[in-house]
């Protein structure tokens, strides 16, 4: 089937029994139990959570390590490659739906629940003095904690430019891969990772500023909740995407991939573009409008 690779794979690659899945289950069990205990101030919860995270990191190293070794050993034929492409596409679709839940919450709150609260006269007496059905609401539930809403100009606009440029550098790197110009590939990938890291630093600074100086916290009503949860989950995805791309950079430096076979790189690139698109929606609907 896959002749150009020099490997005749009449057999679809089915991996041997592996310990990583059960290790991953153990990790997530520890994390779930630990987090539930920790949130309810049960002693030991934080340690169980930490142990879970460590085991999970070990599992990820081991499991992806196996995959990389199998890939380098040319175990994966064309049909396996197709499976990976389908699998990654559907995984990204599931991520789209995860964000859709939070965007849905944002739209519902802005379009339905806040205006409805303002619709009934006297509602503000039940909520808090001075309540007005604005978005973002001028005050938080406690009047002594007023907050300022985020502006689109400044860091958010800069971050938009950074993520858009990172999409360009990544595509440039991909061209380098396809045309076998390794220096271009390495440079493009390194720039992309760097831009991702800068984005994360700027967002961390923005969070600090918002929380400390502007009084905007998770508890600042529905606005604070949707702002932090949407941008927070996006930030986590940028972190994961940056780690993925950094892994690809290490693999490129070690001489992995060639012009025909580099799906690991492509998958990370797909993921990065997905994260990019989510940011554009965030910029428009959370910061700007």
């Amino acid at each position: 089937m896959n002749v150009e690779n020099g490997v005749h794979d009449a057999h679809y690659f089915v991996p041997a029994p592996s310990r990583w899945p059960i290790v991953g289950s153990l990790a997530l069990f520890l994390m779930a139990l630990g987090a539930a205990f920790w949130m309810n101030k049960v002693p030991g919860g934080n340690w169980a959570l930490l142990a879970g995270v460590i085991v999970l990191a070990w599992m990820l190293f081991g499991w992806f390590g196996d995959v990389i070794r199998e890939s380098q050993a040319h175990s994966y034929g064309l049909q396996v490659d197709h499976s990976f492409r389908w699998g990654m596409s559907w995984f990204i679709f599931s991520e789209v739906m995860f964000f859709a839940a939070f965007f849905g919450a944002l739209f519902y709150t802005r379009v339905i629940s806040v205006p409805e609260l303002g619709f009934f006269s006297g509602t503000h007496e039940l909520l808090w003095p001075g309540f007005s059905a604005d978005w973002p609401a001028a005050t938080a539930p406690k009047l002594d904690a007023p907050y300022r809403a985020m502006e689109a100009v400044g860091i958010p606009a800069t971050n938009t430019a950074i993520l858009l440029s990172s999409g360009i550098t990544l595509t440039w790197a991909h061209w380098g891969m396809v045309e076998n110009r390794r220096t271009q590939l390495k440079l493009g990938l390194a720039f992309t990772v760097l831009l991702g890291a800068i984005f994360l630093c700027l967002q961390a600074y923005e969070y600090h500023h918002a929380w400390e100086t502007m009084g905007l916290t998770l508890a600042s009503g529905a606005y604070g909740a949707t702002f932090y949860m949407l941008t927070g989950f996006h930030g986590m995805h940028v972190l994961v995407g940056t780690i993925m791309l950094a892994t690809m950079l290490v693999r490129v430096l070690r001489g992995h991939f060639n012009a025909e076979h580099h799906f690991g790189f492509e998958a990370a690139a797909w993921y990065w573009h997905f994260v990019d698109v989510v940011w554009l929606l965030l910029f428009v609907f959370v910061y700007w409008l």
Binding site: A105, L127, S220, A222
Partner: peptide, 24 residues
């Protein structure tokens, strides 16, 4: 996503589902 919002409403002060903060 839904149960994550429940979790943050329970422990981290968000108001997704609490009218007192503009949620529902």
């Amino acid at each position: 996503g839904a149960v994550t919002m429940l979790l943050t409403d329970r422990h981290f002060g968000t108001h997704f589902f609490k009218a007192a903060g503009g949620g529902d």
